[in-house]
């Protein structure tokens, strides 16, 4: 954390062309296949942030037929989708494949300082694997789960997220609030009271669902799944691993926002989508580590 913070301070001070050069060196492994489906927008997001995303099919990674090994990438993206149809629980079969066939590479990747972002199905997979919340450096024991929403069924609607400014999360530096679409049927974050207490204490609850008053809420539809403490996303204690139910990859351009047409007419639409900031933070953290 401190090492990263120091590197980031140095990176922030660099002139833009130098930053861009370092960003271009950030290879992002976008894990695909088996029913995942957010590869195009995730790839676009990382590319817009100056990095070099590469789509890699999980089976190629497992069989060693991919161009590179997991350890060759500083950033790993667990994308959204319906891996194996969410059968047996969201992320379950996909995570199981990784657990039995890729786990050592994955833990090595993390222990060597890799950054990882899990969105929606990706967050579910990371949680199922035990990568999150990653308490006490244990990235193997699942301590939490993303249970079915209180109101059953997949639902697609935009929500408002608030970020914990005191969180160590490298992906959300400087962010306070953002609208993103929630698109899931299993997003209710469940863990024991002890675990939840530690997550709060360590500011690992990075993102919460906000009500119209700007405060975290338990009320549907602002909180789409009934997550306790309005939890929308968490990070590991190092802040390098971040999982989030709503989709930052779905707000890359101003016109992704559902109220864009009105904002454009009133001149408040902005020039880029808010979700991009999360990817930029991740890329910059990885670039800073390279530098």
């Amino acid at each position: 954390m401190t090492r990263h913070a120091e590197r980031l301070r140095q990176f922030d001070a660099l002139p833009t062309p130098e930053k861009d050069r370092l960003r271009r060196e950030v290879r992002v492994l976008v894990l695909t296949g088996l029913g995942l489906n957010c590869e195009a927008e995730t790839e676009a997001a990382f590319r817009l942030c100056g990095a070099r995303p590469e789509r890699v099919h999980l089976l190629d990674l497992l069989e060693g037929t991919a161009r590179r090994r997991l350890g060759d990438y500083p950033v790993l993206a667990f994308i959204g989708g319906f891996a194996f149809g969410d059968h047996l629980g969201a992320g379950f079969v996909f995570a199981n494949k990784i657990r039995y066939r890729l786990y050592d590479q994955l833990v090595e990747f993390i222990e060597r300082g890799g950054l990882s972002l899990g969105v929606c199905n990706g967050f579910q997979t990371m949680t199922r694997l035990g990568l999150l919340p990653g308490l006490d450096g244990d990235y193997r024991t699942p301590l939490a789960t993303l249970a079915p929403n209180d109101r059953p069924g997949y639902r697609d609607a935009w929500v408002s997220l608030g970020f914990d400014a005191a969180s160590p999360c490298l992906w959300t530096r400087g962010l306070s609030q953002m609208d993103l679409p929630a698109r899931h049927g299993e997003g209710k974050f469940l863990a024991s009271e002890v675990t939840l207490g530690r997550l709060r204490e360590q500011h690992q609850i990075v993102a919460r669902y906000l009500g119209a008053d700007g405060a975290p809420t338990q009320a549907w539809p602002a909180n789409p799944n009934g997550s306790p403490d309005a939890i929308a996303g968490i990070c590991d204690p190092s802040g390098r691993l971040f999982g989030l139910m709503p989709h930052p990859d779905a707000f890359l351009y101003p016109f992704h926002h559902p109220d864009w047409a009105r904002r454009r007419a009133l001149g408040t639409a902005g020039t880029q989508g808010d979700g991009l900031a999360i990817f930029q933070n991740g890329v910059d953290a990885a670039a800073a580590a390279l530098g």
């Binding site: 489906n37 927008e41 698109r183 989709h247 559902p258």
Partner: peptide
Amino acid sequence: ARHYDHEVKGLTVIK
């Protein structure tokens, strides 16, 4: 209708 995905792929402009 909200149970259908409206924007996967990131290409939806007017939903």
